[in-house]
Simulated scan of single mutants.
Amino acid sequence: MVNDASSSNPNPKPQPDNVRPLPNKRQGLRRGIYLLPNLITTGALFSGFYSIISSMTGDIEQAAIAIVIAGFLDSLDGRVARLTNTQSEFGVQYDSLSDLVAFGVAPALLMFSWVLADLGKLGWFVAFLYMACAALRLARFNTAPDSKVFFGLASPGAAGTIAALAWVWHDNVQQSAGLEFGLPFAVLAGVLAVLMVSNIRYYSPKEFDFGGRVPFLFMVTIVFLFVVVAVYPPGMLLIIGLTYAASGPIGSLLRRRRRNPDGD
């Protein structure tokens, strides 16, 4: 007679607290899903998919604009979920998968189709590095969500910078980038990838309290920014993206100098 191994062990080894037990049966979504925030997330996912298709067909400008639209929708879904009290674990995971497509795969393929393909193996390696770092950034956020600051450049910010750069190029330069620009743009993509997985602190715009009171001058500044962006959207988005990407390392250096004023 064969003894059951599980029944013969009266004191099974306890599982760690952070290990989630596997269910005996696969359970469906009994209570359904919230429609409004997940519709916005689906719009961001569609924009990312459209960007991928546009990059594959050589329409780089449309691919870049689609990533910008995905970034705008991504900034809305979480805030809408909080305002309407429709947050859910399903929405969190769905948003993360959408972000991987729109801000990981789409900008990597955009860069490869635009300038990195001329670099051969180095080009696809840089594209893969960017996509992998975006995936790692999203995984780290899911396991340890940021609050008032981001640790590492957020993937929408990095993707928006790349998209704005491609948009500005195709809006002003009617020729391919070539090898002379391929290497500098590859370096930029590599720097953005490293910033995403770094521990450098960035300010989180999602934590801005739109329901609170602000000085009147602040509101005037916001109106001015709207006007400036409307004058030439791709150029201003590129400046905003580069400024935000650089703000993390610059802020880190300034904080280090304050802690060590004598340079010790």
Rank of each mutant, 00 (worst) to 15 (best):
N3L: 14
P10A: 11
V19W: 14
R30K: 15
G43V: 00
A44T: 09
F46N: 10
S47Y: 08
G58D: 02
D59L: 11
I60W: 05
A66V: 05
I67M: 09
L73D: 02
V80L: 06
T84C: 06
Q87L: 08
Q87C: 11
Q87F: 09
S88Q: 11
F103T: 00
V105Q: 03
A108F: 02
L109T: 06
V115M: 13
A117I: 13
L119C: 10
F125G: 07
A127Q: 00
F128P: 03
A134P: 02
A139E: 04
F141S: 02
D146Q: 06
K148P: 01
K148S: 05
S155H: 02
S155Q: 06
S155C: 04
P156F: 01
V173T: 09
Q174E: 12
L183P: 08
P184C: 03
P184G: 04
F185Y: 09
F185D: 01
F185A: 06
L188N: 03
V191C: 04
V194W: 04
L195P: 01
M196F: 06
I200S: 00
I200C: 02
R201P: 00
Y202H: 10
Y202D: 00
S204A: 14
P205S: 02
D209I: 04
G212M: 09
F218A: 15
T221H: 13
T221N: 14
L225C: 09
F226Y: 14
V231T: 14
P234F: 06
L238C: 03
G248Y: 00
R255K: 12
R259E: 01
N260D: 10
